[in-house]
Design a protein around this nucleic acid. Structure first.
Lengths: 347, 347
DNA sequence: GTTAGCACTCTCTGCCATCGAGTGCTAATA
DNA sequence: TATTAGCACTCGATGGCAGAGAGTGCTAAC
């Protein structure tokens, strides 16, 4: 791209300094500060000139005439694309993450939840994790279990080891023998089939043959819907209050209100997930207008080539990008490892 | 109690007026305001004298010399015990609640969650709901379901219709026939027994007979532990930001931090639950020091005489007590109704 | 017993001067 | 030609001050 070269080495260095400083201090940064801190052999006046250029090019802006400069969204974008350095995680952060992820569990939902807690704790921002969306998984088993004669538990297991269940209440008592027969019939029909195939089955046609109660069919369909749907977890929502850009109560409330709209966030994360890899949405790059002061960093998890979900971070545009990226990548790596382990003997 | 009579009719009326006004306006209320608004045949000077008495008795305080009066915790306590009027719910609130609660579901966890959302929406405060703690329930069924030859799903159902499950991974492949035998054996041992009885069973002794893998036993024990443990839901945590007493960011953060400590809240709610009925903890009546500006209102739910959990509200001491009590009571009523319905044919 | 009147207290608001950080521009310098 | 020292200027932030307003306690009159 043309604009990638419109900045010479020195401008890049100054821009990087401004952004690094601003991320660290949350204060507009002036020419003197830069001249001093990174003792490059330049006077503040020179830097002032360069800053004027950078402002004209749109990488930084001035809150008001007599203030220092603040990165614009374009500036942040250039930063993450070209300037940012990954920040090594501290030893205790690494050990915190690994110890948590080394604890073996066999439930996806808990694994995901754990990952989101880690992300939020380590980064200090809000973690957002989209649970597996099993678009075309295979049903391993369907099982009816009698609770009492009026109620039956329906359990559906997908090959990823994700389980959904639902209790149904019958119109008329149903005995164990009948449940046994239904179990056999259902598994004969469903076991080993993909969700898509199951959806094409006309249970109505089968009714004559084995007479499956509609409530059972409905509950199975409901479970299947749960497999396909994209549940979303968020962790550390109130973390945003810890950052000065939301020191104003009105803004904080606005953002918290936004984050409560899970479907909006889900939609956004889903769209980001299509990018497949580490994806940044900086400020106004977000489709949603209320998010113009927020950045979203996401990446996908799953087995190589087969992503099943998304993890990410939501925070102010003034985010510690280097740290966040390192954290996410590391957690993603361990998450993938666990998933591969869980699905190891998946036929 | 002696102090219940230290206030004559007029003092009570004035105290009630002060508290009602303060709850509505969040502003210290002065003698003129009261003389005017509730046109009792008294001048402001008279009320001033009474207010001085009330202050001396500790029911109200002055933030500073030239300000109006504000209720103290003792004042609120007298208010909820003697003065407060229940506030009728608006038609659309009643219809919101009933419509939500009329939707039949058979899962406790969802029912509880729904109730907490309703409480938080209707009151505007933070809802806290303690899920059923099934101290001595009966296990209806234990079922092993094969996921694949290395993994088995263990499902445990309590008579209340609550289900817990866990996937376990075996050291060595395990075939369907073996699972079948285990299922039969386990149900023979466990079905219909109370949790307490099951705990006393020495699985080790049975090992020789049927050889139940330790992982299976461990997972059953884990499920049982989940039945006994008191899971807590909170809804509308960020609602506290909407009340002026937490307009100061520091305070808001302190409270939000406190509410994130689920175990602290759980402990508190559990203690309140022992009271069995509608219980108020006002400000400093809470054991926890950080809660000196918060009130907690709780009540229990379940079937008559057999409470299984707690619902409640956490908000500022300046809470719309009348409204909250009405809301909680109404939701409690419908919640109880649903629970009775769910457990109707419980042997 | 009640109340009108009054002096007093204390917060809140707006105003103004001052301070200081930072800028842009110009002219001098290497 | 690029850099820099110097300077005038801008503008938000800070603190002090006066005045307004709300509310009180007390006293004396009803």
């Amino acid at each position: 791209m043309a604009w990638e070269n419109e900045l010479n080495e020195r401008k890049r260095f100054i821009l990087k300094s401004i952004i690094d400083d601003y991320i660290a201090s949350a204060q507009p940064v002036g020419s003197r500060t830069i001249a001093k801190k990174h003792d490059i052999g330049l006077g503040s006046a020179t830097i002032r000139n360069e800053m004027a250029d950078l402002e004209e090019l749109g990488y930084i802006t001035q809150p008001h005439t007599s203030a220092g400069r603040v990165p614009s969204d374009k500036g942040y974008r250039f930063y993450v694309d070209n300037l940012m350095q990954l920040q090594k995680l501290a030893y205790d952060e690494i050990s915190l993450i690994s110890r948590a992820m080394d604890q073996k569990i066999e439930e996806f939902s808990q694994l995901i939840k754990r990952a989101s807690v880690l992300i939020s704790d380590v980064t200090g921002y809000t973690a957002v994790v989209m649970a597996p969306q099993l678009k075309s998984t295979v049903i391993k088993s369907v099982q009816l279990i009698s609770v009492d004669e009026m109620r039956t538990l329906v359990v559906v297991i997908a090959k990823e080891g994700i389980v959904h269940n639902k209790i149904i209440r019958h119109e008329n008592p149903i005995d164990n023998e009948r449940i046994e027969r239904l179990n056999n019939a259902l598994n004969r029909i469903i076991k080993g089939k993909t969700i898509d195939n199951i959806k094409r089955i006309s249970f109505l046609e089968l009714q004559g043959e084995i007479n499956i109660p509609t409530s059972v069919i409905a509950s199975i369909e409901e479970c299947i819907k749960k497999f396909e749907s994209a549940e979303i977890y968020m962790e550390g929502i109130t973390n945003i209050l810890n950052h000065p850009e939301f020191g104003d109560l009105m803004k904080a409330r606005e953002v918290l209100g936004l984050l409560k709209e899970e479907d909006v966030i889900a939609e956004m994360v889903k769209r980001a997930a299509e990018k497949q890899a580490l994806d940044f949405k900086i400020g106004s790059e977000n489709e949603i207008d209320e998010m113009k002061d927020l950045s979203v960093i996401t990446t996908v998890y799953g087995r190589e080539g087969k992503d099943i979900g998304t993890i990410g971070v939501i925070g102010p545009t003034r985010m510690t990008y280097g740290k966040v990226v390192s954290s996410i990548k590391y957690i993603q790596k361990l998450l993938n490892r666990e998933i591969i382990r869980m699905l190891a003997d998946d036929s």
